[in-house]
Write a protein that binds this DNA or RNA. Structure first.
Length: 489
RNA sequence: GCCGGGGUAGCUCAGUUGGUAAGAGCGCAACAUUCAUAACGUUGAGGUCGUGGGUCCGACUCCCACCCUCGGCACCA
């Protein structure tokens, strides 16, 4: 492998810190982690970024309601996201916060100046319905009867002068880049949605708010205004890697290979962000990968319904790889998925306990109890069919991961697991052969199974890193712990 | 309202350009078996492929209408 020179820069979106992490962010983090680990396995120079988006009204409001200092509150929330990433065994190389004044703030300022220099920043009156209670503008959709749904007070029509970004100028170019494939959007349906939005044309967007109405970094050279969310959050992808000083790292890593995002923020990543980059004379990310949402028992996850699934609890209860497995195998990568404990436990028992867990225990049991086998007696397969099957599935696996079909990649691995189980049954490995040649053949078969398990571990590493490690250890020491104890019903 | 994606076995989904393929996995049942986590394996039951029309020698696969569902339609992120 000589992929050392090839770089791979992957990001998650930066979740907002008004609430602790839920399972939706866990999905995104784990998906991005598979990509990062897979490409590392290919020998590429991988950089994997995640972080938190902290500025804005909501964090401010939630902090106030809790009687907390906002920065202090944001610190705590951001810490929770840092924790969940760690708990999920996500291999991020860095973690950026929008409140970071060393890396982020100067980078955002620099980007702003670039946009300004391109003539894409201008002042315009922004009109909106403002709720003094919320201290925020309300969108048309939020407004009920001309009133704020939270405070039930009549909204004021407030006009303020803000800085706008000339988004409209770039729609044609972005459309072109998408159509040519230079900017790839996965899946196809989301690409089409973006294209249809572009076709309708985009209006310019406000990139700042009056200082006292928005928590954020000040607009360079106009401290009466603060930078609005797009201008603050999206640039995290370049601020973290050294955009401000245009470091070697920045030159090497940008443009990003993949931005992993949720469908709710698609427009900002497929239109706003590319427009900003074009304006600044920077390259566009290569791929935007859009995942769906996770419902709980068919219902939207929400605080008011009280059905928010806490990823910390899940990991505590079932173990990190069980959670990763569910997210990657049961949830279709680009569709909305569903979470229930029943489904989770069923997946766990059938695939994890009965599949990989059982196979490893089985093979090691045969090797140690039934035979005095020492691995390896050969690094080549004796059984052509098994070898062929593994090769086929490896191919499918590679294709699947590289097209973001994580569930299909896992299906391929489980095909190998199933083939191994069948092999053991067909050969009746537990019986004692009567001849010495029969005995020799038996050892060869066990060797095949060890080779297969070893390969399964390798394939599993991006998905279930802890399990992969345990498998490796089991093969090396010929002792296995119970990988996934069955959950009693 | 406009635009787009879907509606295939109990569940989650595959089904290439229309013609002996109506499929997989899970769940369920039976059988077999004991090396393993009551596991693994084999076999089986289960679907008029949303509804009603149409084109065709022939449609899950094409056309029309309708029903249901999910999403997008521009500053909540």
């Amino acid at each position: 492998m000589t992929n050392k020179s090839k770089k791979f820069y992957v990001t998650t979106s930066i979740p907002y810190t008004n609430a602790p992490p839920h399972i939706g962010f866990a999905l995104e983090a784990v998906q991005a982690d598979v990509l990062a680990r897979y490409h590392r396995g290919l020998g590429e120079d991988v950089f994997f970024l995640t972080g938190t988006d902290e500025h804005g009204i909501k964090t401010l409001r939630v902090a106030r309601e809790a009687g907390r200092d906002v920065k202090d509150f944001a610190d705590e929330m951001s810490g929770k996201f840092k924790d969940i990433v760690k708990v999920l065994n996500v291999s991020n190389d860095d973690f950026i916060r929008t409140t970071d004044e060393v890396r982020h703030k100067p980078a955002v300022e620099k980007l702003w100046k670039k946009l300004e220099k391109s003539g894409d920043i201008y002042k315009k009156k922004y009109k909106g319905f403002y709720c003094p209670g919320c201290e925020a503008f309300k969108t048309d959709r939020e407004i009920i009867d001309g009133k704020c749904p939270i405070h039930l007070k009549k909204l004021e029509l407030v006009e303020e002068e803000n800085y706008f970004f000339r988004l409209s100028k770039y729609t044609k170019e972005i459309e072109k880049r998408i159509n040519s494939g230079e900017l790839e959007i996965v899946p196809e349906g989301k690409k089409n949605e973006t294209l249809s939005m572009l076709k309708q044309g985009m209006e310019d967007v406000s990139f700042s708010r009056m200082k006292d109405k928005y928590w954020g970094w000040p607009v360079p050279e106009d401290p009466s205004q603060n930078l609005y969310v797009w201008m603050d959050a999206l640039p995290n992808y370049i601020s973290a890697i050294g955009y401000e000083e245009e470091t070697d790292q920045f030159k090497k890593l940008w443009p990003a290979n993949v931005h992993c995002i949720g469908k709710d923020i698609m427009k900002f990543h497929t239109i706003f962000w590319p427009a900003m980059l074009l304006s600044a004379g920077l390259e566009l990310p290569k791929t935007i990968f859009v995942h769906g949402f996770i419902n709980v028992a068919g219902q939207k996850m929400s605080k008011s319904l009280g059905n928010v699934v806490d990823p910390f609890e899940l990991v505590k209860k079932y173990g990190v790889d069980a959670v990763r497995y569910y997210l990657l195998r049961e949830i279709l990568p680009t569709e909305d998925g569903d979470f229930t404990y029943e489904k989770f436990e069923q997946r766990y028992n059938s695939d994890l306990a009965g599949g990989i867990g059982n196979l490893v225990a089985r093979v090691l049991g045969i090797a140690t109890k039934i035979s005095n086998f020492q691995f390896p007696i050969s690094n080549k397969f004796s059984n052509f069919n098994l070898q062929k099957k593994i090769k086929e599935e490896q191919k499918k696996y590679k294709l699947a991961v590289e097209s973001f079909k994580f569930n299909e990649a896992l299906i391929a691995v489980w095909e190998i697991i199933s083939a191994c189980d069948k092999y053991i049954n067909e050969e009746k490995l537990w019986e004692t052969p009567s001849t010495s040649s029969g005995q020799a053949k038996k050892l060869e078969i066990i060797n095949d199974l060890f080779l297969a398990i070893e390969e399964i571990g390798v394939l599993l590493e991006p998905f279930l890193p802890e399990t992969a490690e345990k498998i490796k250890k089991a093969v090396d020491t010929q002792k296995a712990e119970n990988l996934f104890p069955r959950i009693a019903k």
